[in-house]
Design a protein around this nucleic acid. Structure first.
Lengths: 146, 146
DNA sequence: TATTGTTATACTCTATAACTATA
DNA sequence: TATAGTTATAGAGTATAACAATA
């Protein structure tokens, strides 16, 4: 189990609940991945392979180094959950995709990772819309610089 | 940068925003820790040392193995950010606490980790209360078993 | 003997730097 | 020469199992 991101001496109840939510989400993700023999990183990459992807694309989205993605994908390939093929138009590029087995494992993982579904299910339709609006508004923080 | 927990093919906008929020929170935590030469795990443990703590207490709260905490605390001690002392009443127990230097580093980290503060600042007081209520309600998922 | 914590070990995640293959 | 990706390597996080110290 990865140690949680926090707590910081939360000054408000809202901040405390943000941390609790993030912590619960992460723990649930990790536990669901483990159920299917996946590390969080493997589950994450597998989830991005809904369509054919390039290595650079993946490392950009994941915000991590390309060499890291190479290793994760190499393991997925070794387990026959994904394959890498050179792009015939420019053989420097690789095309990564899930195998049928990868599809099955990922579907099973998603079934296990019920935290977001259950969290939403605890709310009325109106509350779900409210929560989405508030989260979106709070995330505007990202745009404000720093 | 740790790879994000997701995405899972989010079926609703609310679920998608939950992931985005968690992802942004984690990235901000990791970046703030790095600014002060801390790993996320170090920042996390340091944050728990606001008062004197035991090793078992820490591993319980962190949801990870005791041997893991031993290593993290050993590094904090090597950097003179924390100290371990045997409890004189029962020398099997250790009392972990931050040093003055540890206090300073953690305070600086908290100053840098402004994501929750800024997220809250994007909301009105009423919206903050609403968000806290909705997050709390969605987290009831934890109590429902599984 | 039971409990607290540590050490030894192994595996994964991650990044940096050097490298290969392709263009 | 420039770009996409890989390999070599090293450091940190994590868990399991064996261990030491204390009770």
């Amino acid at each position: 189990m990865t140690v949680p991101s926090g707590p910081v001496s939360a000054t408000t109840e809202t901040e405390r609940l943000m941390f609790e939510f993030v912590d619960a989400y992460e723990r649930a993700f990790e536990a669901a991945a483990k159920e299917h023999g996946l590390s969080p990183a493997h589950a994450c990459v597998l989830g991005r392979l809904d369509s054919v992807r390039g290595m650079g694309e993946l490392s950009d989205e994941l915000g991590c180094d390309a060499s890291n993605v190479t290793q994760i994908v190499a393991r997925l390939e070794a387990r026959e959950l994904a394959v890498r093929q050179a792009n015939p138009d420019d053989r420097r590029f690789r095309q990564i995709q899930r195998t049928t087995a990868g599809d099955a494992v990922y579907a099973a993982f998603e079934e296990s990772f019920d935290f977001p579904r259950r969290a939403v299910a605890n709310l009325t339709t109106k509350e779900q819309r409210q929560l989405a609006t508030l989260l979106g508004k709070s995330l505007a923080v990202k745009e404000r610089g720093a």
